[in-house]
Write a protein that binds this DNA or RNA. Structure first.
Lengths: 182, 182
DNA sequence: GGGTTCGCTCAACAACCGTAGAGCGAAAAA
DNA sequence: TTTTTCGCTCTACGGTTGTTGAGCGAACCC
């Protein structure tokens, strides 16, 4: 019944991290206060600082995502992989992705992280596109998916709500294909 | 050489509004302070409140855009009109659009305004699409343009920087067409 | 020209924010 | 058991924020 000290520490760190992710994803960086995170984690605000140092550090920890799986990117599988990106399968995007996206337009740190993440995806995509303007095409593919995700997950546009994932995928497939060279 | 009182009033109101638009567009709502707006307008912070009442009111005034021109929306012209939306022509989007977009993910008011503006565009587009899922297609068209705009104007993705507008339009045209019924 | 209006500034308040340091109590080490 | 460690809370500080009310000076009205 008793819990070891290290265990307690790790456990409350996880609770804080979870609370932070949720609030960052819902309200963004600026509107999320340390106090609110602490309250949601059932913890004193000072403990948050003690664990993560600074609010920016907490944010960095909260949004850091596991490295993307390096699956083989055959040109044909490109579009399918992109459609997965939407988070349509497996119950939506991770909370850390949402948290980062929610803040990427206002928080300089999140903006840089977002640019880096998108840049990485552009790199990955461009490698699978055989055209002189491969990077530009990859960038457009990426921002297109970004836009649909923002509209769907962050702005909650009603026309996209409750649409079966397969229907979205079916409509988007030819769209994405239109950016691949003939 | 002397200026009338009404003239002075209107003049500083415009300066404040301009400063607000610029800062809201650059940093978003939360990171823009009344003091910063006032400083940029060369004015006392209290005057900003006196003119606009509240920071939220100032934001509302700053982002309110002129009503979209009700040009005839022939189904063929749809795509061209959408490409204009990108702000590629005529030196980019208005500062009020950028200000609204910059804050739409974090400020509840801006979020509602953005949803409304996107909803209106979806309506307009859907009217020109002849398909049972016209609204869904219109929503996707809208969010796609949103994504490209966000990536280009707000995140400043380097692959999209300095790309001639015509090149972007040429690549996007088939993309958008892919969402119109055959 | 004298009184009034009013655009504008000055100074300040109350609330909230991120953050730091001292201290408590229980787990760990001796 | 005694001593030490350390996860955690309490309290509080300094700074910034949105916002307000009093007052000044110049344009306005008579």
């Amino acid at each position: 019944m008793t819990v070891s000290r290290a265990e307690r520490r790790q456990r409350s760190e996880q609770r804080i991290l979870g609370a932070a992710r949720t609030l960052f994803a819902e309200r963004g960086f600026e509107r999320t206060t340390i106090r609110a995170v602490a309250a949601r984690a059932g913890v004193d605000p000072a403990l948050v600082m003690q664990h993560f140092g600074t609010k920016d550090d907490l944010f960095r920890r909260a949004v850091q995502a596991p490295p993307p799986d390096e699956r083989a990117e055959s040109p044909e599988g490109l579009v399918d992989h992109l459609l997965d990106t939407l988070g349509l399968k497996m119950g939506g995007l991770s909370e850390q992705s949402l948290a980062m996206m929610r803040s990427m337009l206002t928080h300089p740190d999140a903006s840089a992280t977002a640019r880096a993440a998108l840049g990485a995806q552009i790199d990955r995509l461009a490698a699978g596109i055989d055209a002189p303007d491969a990077r530009l095409r990859a960038a457009l593919l990426t921002t297109i998916m970004l836009g649909v995700t923002v509209g769907h997950q962050l702005l909650d546009i009603e026309e996209l709500r409750d649409v079966p994932p397969e229907e979205l995928a079916a409509l988007l497939r030819p769209v994405l294909h239109a950016l691949l060279p003939a």
